[in-house]
């Protein structure tokens, strides 16, 4: 699988739009800036919803109201994150494919998505029961705490992609090279 991924990444890196993105100072850096700025919309709105569940913000507004009203701006944020993220990957595909941090980030993103999906059903059933309570029940608080922790992990691993600590070809323990999916040079 790792060699197939690397093959795809190598193919992508040879396309002219990949080279163009990689070599354009302003284009690449503005995409990167947009990716970071959009954290305010995606993670920012998500954090407000999670803080509401924990009873730490907007305690006097029904929980489902906060979640529903912030749903749209949050999803706009995540869409922008996704688009700019794909572009950033396109600009540097080979190194990113073999990045330990990128791989951990993807796992955390999947975990966060599953957590959000499970929580969504639980929240929809809340109307008329704990909705107006200042602090949500334990299960909602656990989901909110988990959501905050996972996204902090996403931000941290995302930022670490830029560092070359565990790049393939470096002096890494075998398990690091395995986790990063390094394909031995032929």
């Amino acid at each position: 699988m790792n060699s197939a991924l690397l093959q795809f990444a190598t193919w992508l890196s040879e396309r002219s739009f990949s080279v163009g993105l990689h070599e354009s100072f302003y284009m690449y850096n503005w995409i990167e800036t947009t990716h970071v700025m959009t954290l305010m919309l995606s993670f920012g709105m998500l954090a407000i919803v999670d803080l509401r569940m924990l009873g730490l913000a907007f305690a006097n507004v029904p929980a489902s109201k906060i979640a529903e009203r912030l749903d749209k701006p949050m999803l706009i944020g995540f869409t922008l994150m996704f688009i700019t993220g794909i572009l950033l990957f396109t600009a540097i595909p080979v190194r990113t494919t073999q990045s330990l941090w990128f791989r951990i980030k993807i796992v955390l993103l999947i975990a966060a998505a599953i957590n959000a999906w499970l929580f969504r059903g639980y929240l929809l059933a809340a109307k008329g029961s704990w909705d107006a309570d200042a602090v949500a029940p334990r299960r909602a608080r656990i989901a909110a705490g988990l959501s905050l922790a996972l996204w902090c992990g996403v931000i941290m691993t995302g930022r670490f992609i830029a560092y070359d600590w565990f790049d393939c070809g470096g002096d890494n323990p075998a398990f690091i090279d395995w986790a990063a999916g390094c394909v031995a040079a032929e």
């Binding site: 700025m37 919309l41 995606s42 920012g44 709105m45 998500l46 954090a47 931000i155 930022r159």
Partner: peptide, 19 residues
């Protein structure tokens, strides 16, 4: 690590500004 926490702070500050 400090830089990553700085980004979390940015998300919180920016999120509350936007809200």
């Amino acid at each position: 690590v400090v830089e990553a926490v700085h980004l979390m702070g940015l998300a919180l500050l920016g999120g509350t500004v936007l809200a």
